[in-house]
Design a protein around this nucleic acid. Sequence first.
DNA 1: GCTGAAAGTGTTCCCAC
DNA 2: GTGGGAACACTTTCAGC
Lengths: 140, 140
Amino acid sequence: MEDLDRRIVDLLRADGRMSYTDLGKAMGLSTSAVHQRVRRLEERGVLKGYAAIVDYTALDLPLTAFISISPLDPAAPDDIPDRIRHITELDACHSVAGEENYILKARVRTPGDLETLLARIRAAANVATRTTVVLSTPWE
Amino acid sequence: MEDLDRRIVDLLRADGRMSYTDLGKAMGLSTSAVHQRVRRLEERGVLKGYAAIVDYTALDLPLTAFISISPLDPAAPDDIPDRIRHITELDACHSVAGEENYILKARVRTPGDLETLLARIRAAANVATRTTVVLSTPWE
DNA sequence: GCTGAAAGTGTTCCCAC
DNA sequence: GTGGGAACACTTTCAGC
């Protein structure tokens, strides 16, 4: 990874809709040169995509929680990610080293919705859950 | 939030660079109608911005960890987020209800870098740390 | 690998409904 | 609030260095 590519990635992480024209101006490069580099970064998979950043409170999903899960049956094959992938309230699924096997991130509207969600997770994956509620997010 | 707005948000979450023309086609609406709605969503803060999604392994930051922290001096005023905001390895800082006060998300290159990072966090914020290393991320 | 120009698209603003 | 048209900006491709 060259320095120029690194700067492009940084700029696009800060503003994913920045135009190639503006990227070029910001880096002292022609539009086509920037375009070419971005295309190569996309093809190589360094830039995996672009996403709008959303205010979850405005979407009526003000409650965020981290849910750590442990299988109840340690002998069962571990297909937990597949078993819970369909649950749209889940933002992320990380396999981790530590007391629990996975950490999930969930967004819901109310504590009642969280309660329902936990029940669904336990049923779908046959796991025990440990939940940490997010009070606020100073930055992300 | 109307249903049309919700669909716009969903589409832009999936592809933050989607053009207003394509958004309009996907929703059976004119370009200007979509444009106006997106602008209002941005002004209202529902759409907070756009970001490129990056492959951290390709950026040479293959190691992700969750770091839970607890203040060593419970009497000290809690300005922990401000004290660690300058640390660029940190992706997110959540204030949480639970055993610890904050959960941080960090990206580094090597275990050695993680060790150094933890020392820096402890020194900057006068906290104890508990770290959970991410082995893989089935989805995010 | 970069530049500059040309053609095709998309964006943005304004007006009519 | 929605749709259409025109001016402008951006994207994308290509020849030349």
